[in-house]
């Protein structure tokens, strides 16, 4: 049982998300943490599509969607309209975007929102590709992943580059930053709460499995999410006032192969390619450990 969350369900069931999708878990935990005094600004993406087929809606709080790349700008306008009417204080303002809407097309408007320091929580549910349009690669897609635009061909084996490090780029704007994982809902809720109390912009990137795009059985999502944590594929940390703190560390080391081999999107990978991923993950993890140890304010 998750501690200290609202009992009321503000995210209604009956939506058309795929079985095993991580995104509804993200939405549900957000609303169970934020309560009814919340406004959601949703970027175009799976979440927007499967929750609001007019005249039906899953949202029992005010919700707005305009386009793919502008949710942060829309939220900036909502923020100022509420301030103007003297009703800003009590309301949690949350932007919801997928990784495509955050890392790529929506990054300009996210950067503007961060620079202006609006008191907004931006939640990026990161399923590592453009799933809504049919599994195309995004700036969040891991190296070697087989997507419909980076197919595992004979010459080129999936995506050629590693993902962008968006949390660090966001942290450089001075925002409160956290990474989270749907397999650890209490941790996500704690970070959300912190963001709601933070006087300025916050960014939480939550690892969210997509059985359809990752090609794994729909009941394996949480297990895969746990492996993303224990392999250090997706470390969980916070950057507060520019200082990094790891939220939790795996008690025992799991090689990345265990994570990769569970998913159809990586099944074409050679031993050498897996070793390349392992090296990348190790380097990233060691950098995080060193930064945490140093206690330095890096931004």
């Amino acid at each position: 049982m998750i501690n200290a969350l609202h009992e009321r369900e503000l995210f209604a069931p009956g939506h058309s998300g795929c079985a095993g999708c991580g995104a509804p878990i993200v939405a549900r935990i957000i609303l169970k943490t934020s309560g009814p005094d919340t406004i959601i600004c949703n970027a175009t993406g799976c979440m927007e599509v499967f929750t609001t087929p007019y005249p039906r809606t899953s949202w029992k709080v005010p919700w707005i969607h305009a386009a793919f790349e502008n949710a942060s700008a829309v939220a900036s306008g909502v923020d100022k309209a509420l301030i103007r009417q003297g009703i800003r204080d009590k309301t949690n303002l949350v932007v919801l975007g997928g990784d495509g809407g955050t890392f790529d097309i929506g990054f300009g408007s996210l950067s503007g929102m961060l620079e202006r320091g609006h008191k907004i929580t931006y939640v990026c549910y990161d399923n590592e590709a453009y799933m809504n349009t049919g599994i195309q690669r995004s700036g969040a897609t891991p190296k070697y992943a087989n997507t419909t635009t980076t197919p595992a061909g004979k010459k080129i084996h999936g995506k050629s580059d590693f993902e962008k490090d968006i949390p660090f780029i966001v942290a450089a704007h001075g925002a409160y930053v956290a990474t989270a994982n749907v397999a650890f809902p209490q941790d996500f809720a704690n970070k959300l709460k912190k963001s709601f109390e933070h006087d300025g912009a916050s960014y939480i990137q939550i690892f969210s499995p997509c059985p359809t795009g990752w090609k794994h059985p729909s009941d394996m999502g949480i297990e895969i999410a746990k492996l993303a944590f224990s392999t250090n594929m997706f470390p969980m940390y916070e950057i507060e006032k520019g200082v990094i703190k790891l939220s939790r560390k795996p008690t025992k080391f799991t090689p990345v192969d265990d994570y990769l081999l569970r998913q159809g999107r990586f099944k074409h990978m050679s031993k050498e390619e897996m070793a390349d991923v392992q090296q990348h993950v190790n380097e990233k993890w060691e950098r995080l450990l060193k930064l945490e140890e140093s206690g330095l304010r890096i931004f």
Partner: peptide, 13 residues
């Protein structure tokens, strides 16, 4: 693009 997007947010707000 963001100016007119923020206008959506504030008008809807």
């Amino acid at each position: 693009h963001s100016a007119i997007s923020a206008a959506i947010g504030s008008s809807a707000g």
